[in-house]
């Protein structure tokens, strides 16, 4: 459905994103995971054609959706696609909601714009969508303002807006990060059901490896503006081949399952102005060699997964 190849992004002279590739099909959930500043949101904005808003531009690669390259799409055509066949959900529901407008009219607008419905039909569509999302008493909710609702309910409304035009692809950028865990679980369940029931292609962006393990079929691991490893979710968790992925998994508390000590990773995530040369992970990598500091590693492919590491094979041979 959606296929990104070797995507690069620049703001003036800085290049915060390069070499990002992934694809996601109908009924499939792809997770993009990485620590703060790794380029997850930039990837989402690139796909949505929203980079120009913040002064960025795509410097290379393709974003293919349903047979056409979106990087060459004029803004007018993009406007039809956004909120139409490709939906976006962001971390803060208030970036998508107008605080001064009641919920009903806000969701109605999507149906009017993208489905060409009249006021009555649009409201019917709104109530139908709210009902599918198990929002109690849709008619009552339509009459409320955003500030009269909880964070979880607002996020549900944003999901409703993204679904109104029956999109093929939904990009969710940290949709549950600001929410309590019990609410997060409900939203995750909702997204899972939508993928199954509507054959939606879901791109789920998160920094939480547990959320990835719970929901995704495939995973892209990002570090310092690059995709460093991608593959099926079981492969990523059971046999990570990239030293960063391995280290990241060693950082997650597993409660009682394995009471082994968290390993942590020496040093800190680099910022865009000091991305290292060669392999971006080399200053923190326990396996780094001289070549890692100068040569950017290419992807080493094994089965369905690929790791951008000079020594990925070695990494696989050792117990993770």
């Amino acid at each position: 459905m959606l296929s990104v190849r070797d995507l690069g992004v620049a703001f003036g002279m800085v290049q915060p994103l390069s070499g990002v590739s992934f694809s996601v099909g109908k009924g499939e959930t792809l997770g993009i995971v990485g620590e703060s500043g790794s380029g997850k949101s930039l990837t989402a904005m690139s796909v949505m054609g929203l980079l120009p808003l913040s002064g960025g531009r795509i410097t290379g690669g393709t974003v293919e959706f349903d047979g056409q390259d979106l990087t060459k799409l004029p803004e007018r055509a993009y406007r039809k696609l956004r909120g139409g066949r490709i939906g976006l959900i962001t971390q803060n529901p208030m970036t998508s909601l107008d605080p001064l407008k009641k919920i009903g009219p806000q969701v109605d607008d999507v149906a009017k714009l993208h489905l060409g419905l009249d006021a009555a039909a649009a409201r019917a569509r709104t109530e139908e969508i709210l009902g599918t999302l198990r929002i109690p008493e849709p008619a009552l909710i339509c009459d409320r303002y955003p500030h009269q609702m909880s964070g979880g309910m607002k996020q549900r409304i944003v999901i409703a807006m993204a679904l109104t035009a029956d999109p093929d692809v939904l990009i969710a950028d940290e949709p549950t990060t600001a929410l309590d865990v019990t609410v997060q679980a409900q939203i995750i369940r909702l997204l899972d059901d939508l993928v199954k029931d509507r054959d939606l292609a879901l791109v789920l962006i998160t920094h939480d490896m547990s959320v990835v393990a719970q929901t995704c079929d495939k995973v892209v691991v990002m570090y310092a503006g690059r995709a460093v490893e991608h593959g099926p979710v079981e492969a990523i968790f059971d046999h990570p081949r990239h030293p960063y992925t391995q280290a990241l998994i060693g950082c997650i508390p597993r409660g009682l399952v394995e009471a082994k000590r968290l390993t942590g990773i020496e040093g800190t995530v680099p910022t865009v102005v000091n991305y290292p040369d060669g392999c971006p992970f080399h200053p923190r990598c326990p396996r780094a060699q001289a070549v890692c500091a100068t040569e950017p590693p290419a992807f080493s492919v094994a089965g369905d997964s690929a790791a951008a590491c000079h020594f990925a094979e070695v990494a696989h041979a050792e117990p993770a």
Binding site: A185, Q186, I188, V211, C216
Partner: peptide
């Protein structure tokens, strides 16, 4: 509501 970092231990999320 707390997920395990292991795709083999997915939870059935009951509606709340």
């Amino acid at each position: 509501s707390t997920f395990e970092p292991d795709p083999k231990k997915r939870r059935l999320i009951a509606p709340l």
